[in-house]
Amino acid sequence: MTLFHYIHKDTVLHRMDGRLKLASLLLFSLAAGFASDLPDYLAPLSVLICSVLLAKLPFTVLLKEMRFFGVIILIVIVVNAFTFPGDPILKSPFASISRQGVIAGLRFAGRLSIVLLVSTVITGTTPLTRFRDAIEWYLRPVPFVPEARVATMINLTFLLIPVLLDSFKEIRNAQNSRCGQLRKNPVKRMKYLVFPLLGQTLRRADEIVNAMEARCYSEVRTKATFKCKKTDWFLLAISFAVFLFVLL
């Protein structure tokens, strides 16, 4: 799985300051929200496609792994086209397709594509710890928020997700090898999956806590150092320009 995973390369985007990258993520997400006309979608999409290429991310592999989202987009377009009231493009005795419905569906597709692409670029070029450091930096001035704890929690959550998915698969396979799939009652099936997974997760969490304590875990830790280069500001300026283009 490559989508939403960090892919180590030495490019301008990989080296970009995490704080500015987080700001760019926000700007592109806002641009997706404000977009209304075709150029509003094309501008961010073309910048993001260039970013994927600039970051040397495996474009075709990523596209293949986005198929699932393609299906969602298609469903939304079809549902909108058939249910949105407006001028009919195609009429039949059972249902009709409206022009406004198709446009609404395409708008949703455009927004989702922007969000998907910007998430792909950001996650593909940023190790999670740099994200964590950036979040910690942004949270520092917020009163009553223990920024180091929040950052550690985010880190551990993302770290544990693949491990939990593996455990889930293992438990399911073990049950299926004893014909667990023949159980028709979904509640019972879930019970046999969820309880062992919960038990395993709690045990694992306990062991991780021990391992972290053994290495002197503390919230007063070495602070991350950030370096903003001119190119980083230039990349942020491009993001800002795209946002302004969409907004105005």
Partner: peptide, 30 residues
């Protein structure tokens, strides 16, 4: 202490980050 299951000891996203976990806890300069 080196634990029985290394998967429960590893907390970093990369190999280097995991090794840095202990020294960072001790608040050493970067």
């Amino acid at each position: 202490l080196v634990f029985q299951d290394p998967d429960n000891q590893i907390v970093g996203q990369t190999v280097a980050e995991d090794v840095a976990f202990g020294p960072e806890n001790l608040n050493f300069p970067p």
